[in-house]
């Protein structure tokens, strides 16, 4: 079923690494269980997208927690209590005695700000969501914060290219056709099974099964033209293809290029640095040296021409020559 494939990568049930986050979880879990009355460990784990062990550990801690009370001795009535039978025998959570805590906590200024800025970013999505929904949501988040949200904002971008068509094909499980200019500069008509839409700030990408190449490829939406949503269904067998979080994977047949980079500009290299430990780069003068893998020289050549004061290609000689050729040809246009 196409629907299963299209699900975005979910935040995996990663353990909560920080005590602050584990405290937040405890403060969130109690009102949820109180509200539900009775809930299984599995349901709670699915709801909070954490592991069942995390739920059990949290419940065990809540069950022995409470307030010092009048005696300051944490007497029985000063503690939470749960139905141990339900918990031990049926894996169910029932709070039978509550202390101090009833309702969900407010958002912090930064938490509200993160969600509000995220919503601003999403406003460009072609989801037929009424713009009023966004503003009402942002208003609720601001009211639900303990202090006014930090001033973090993202200008809504409207240069999302063919996002609406791509989104449509993905939702309906049909193939997509478009002319695509590869970064090598050649244009081709492609026919693909759309798998997932990724974005990276201003840039939108489609990962799709490319029928021409018989492989998963990543396409920039702003390089697609002549986009047609076909009525041919996608092949079911590509539904289970694993899609990592990284848009571009370095291949074995890639070219290894040595570059010197201004330490403040290492972030410029972005996806080029996939697989490189940016904290352990060899210092060379006031630069750092990195060995990166590229499928072809085109992207790196453009970067070196764009930011010559920050990035220099050191090796191999043909990579350096490509930069000289590219920049010289550009300069020659101004002489004509």
């Amino acid at each position: 079923m196409a629907a299963d494939r299209d699900r975005p990568a979910k935040a995996a049930a990663e353990p909560l690494a920080f005590a602050q986050d584990r405290l937040t979880f405890l403060l969130a879990l109690v009102p949820y269980v109180l509200d539900a009355g009775r809930v299984t460990v599995a349901e709670a784990a699915a709801h909070f997208q954490v592991s069942e062990k995390q739920i059990r550990d949290a419940v065990s801690l809540i069950a022995v927690s409470g307030v010092p009370g009048e005696t300051t001795q944490y007497q029985h009535g000063d503690l939470f209590d749960i139905s141990w039978d339900a918990f031990d025998e049926h894996d169910e959570i029932v709070i039978t005695h509550r202390v101090a805590l009833d309702d969900s906590p407010r958002f912090s200024a930064r938490e509200a700000a993160a969600l509000i800025a995220g919503l601003q970013y999403l406003q460009a999505l072609p989801e037929n969501v009424d713009q009023g929904v966004y503003s009402s949501l942002m208003d609720k988040l601001a009211r639900g914060a303990s202090e006014s949200p930090s001033q973090v904002a993202i200008a809504s971008s409207d240069s999302t290219g063919s996002l609406a068509e791509v989104r449509d094909a993905l939702a309906r499980g049909v193939r997509l056709e478009f002319d695509y200019l590869s970064s090598r500069g050649s244009a081709e008509r492609r026919e693909v099974d759309p798998l997932r839409i990724d974005s990276d700030d201003e840039n939108w990408y489609l990962r799709a099964w490319d029928h021409l190449r018989q492989a998963v490829r990543t396409f920039r939406l702003d390089r697609m033209t002549g986009v047609t949503v076909t009525d041919r269904p996608v092949d079911e067998e590509h539904g289970d293809l694993p899609l990592g979080d990284s848009l571009f994977q370095a291949g074995d047949d890639d070219l290894v290029v040595t570059v010197d980079v201004d330490p403040d500009a290492v972030a410029l290299l972005g996806e080029f640095m996939a697989g490189v430990d940016t904290r352990r780069l060899e210092p060379v003068g006031d630069r750092v040296r990195a060995r990166i893998r590229v499928a072809h020289l085109n992207g790196l050549t453009r970067l070196a021409a764009a930011r010559p004061s920050a990035v220099t290609v050191v090796d191999p000689p043909e990579a350096r020559a490509a930069v000289v050729d590219w920049a010289s040809r550009a300069l020659a246009r101004y002489d004509g």
Binding site: L27, L29, D35, H47, S104, E111
Partner: peptide
């Protein structure tokens, strides 16, 4: 981390 905590709080409302 802030976003993840905000989500925990959202889910708390049930």
């Amino acid at each position: 981390r802030e976003s993840r905590r905000a989500l925990l709080k959202l889910r708390s409302i049930g």
